[in-house]
Amino acid sequence: MDQLTRIAYKLRRDIIEMAHNSSAGHVGGDLSVIDILAVLYFDVMNVSPERVRDPDRDRFLLSKGHCAGALYCALGEKGFFDKQEALLTFGTFGTRFIGHPNTDVPGVEINSGSLGHGISVGVGMALAAKMDGRTYRTYVVLGDGEMAEGSNYEGMMAAGHYRLDNLCATVDCNRLQISGQTKNVMDSGSLADKFRDFGWNVIEVENGNNCSQLSKAYRRAGDCKGKPSAVIAYTLKGKGVSFMENQVSWHHGVMNDEQYRQAVRELSEVSLRETGAETCPKAGRFQNAPPDFFRVQSEVSLRETGAETCLKAGRFQNAPPELFRVQEELLT
């Protein structure tokens, strides 16, 4: 497993944690867009928590703002704030980690959540860069259901008109929205053709959950001069959790405890399998498993059971039997 995929799966586990803790969020879309966010934040964009006010930083806008949970996980992982605060307080009374991006959260550039604003705001940011002779790039991420908003097309038109090659829009094309399949709810036809007609460079990514394919697409976008670029990423809603994948009910579904455990198990299996750990577990002992595995599992399981446990790598003291059972199942 490459480093970016590893990060994406770590973020998936965070998304599941956040969604389960809060019984809120848009977990299906979070899981479809997370590879895009992982690649942008950990491979492509020039952003860091130390430079949140740097005028030369790249700008990121989550136009499909309802996937704020995924954005908070990526920003937290990047170090913009204590990720645990986001995981534990998302969607709760008085939190700054509300259900749509807002600038009280470090790293969020502008408030969003009302769909169809991102491209136009991005046009403004890209125009500002041109006016000031700065080289930063502006990245906007949209959903395919969102493309029914007419304001998108005003923004696309202006970006093409002003040849904003420092602007890159990505459509997280998971083909589902809250009421069903996007093509049945409101068929927007070929998004690639629409972007092209407005003068954009279009890059289609066959597997929008494949970090390597996404990285290549963003490199091509960066190399394109004289036109804005659109990355149309064909993704899977709920990607990584079997019972959520391509299921419209998980647009903003809430997991029960059993579903949560299954999601954690599946995502951990992927991580272990992908990282190639050959592990022979005995109750309370894991050999050669990656440290991150223990961190996630212990945080999840121990908090759930309320055990006060002192964790060391590979050893659990005072952990309840259930934890070991789950772990063993995972590894056998």
């Binding site: 550039e109 502008i110 705001v121 403004g124 890209a126 500002a128 006016m131 000031d132 304001s151 923004g155």
Partner: peptide
Amino acid sequence: SIAAGLAACGK
């Protein structure tokens, strides 16, 4: 929206 994007970048 474009006005807001420009303003967010110091204009």
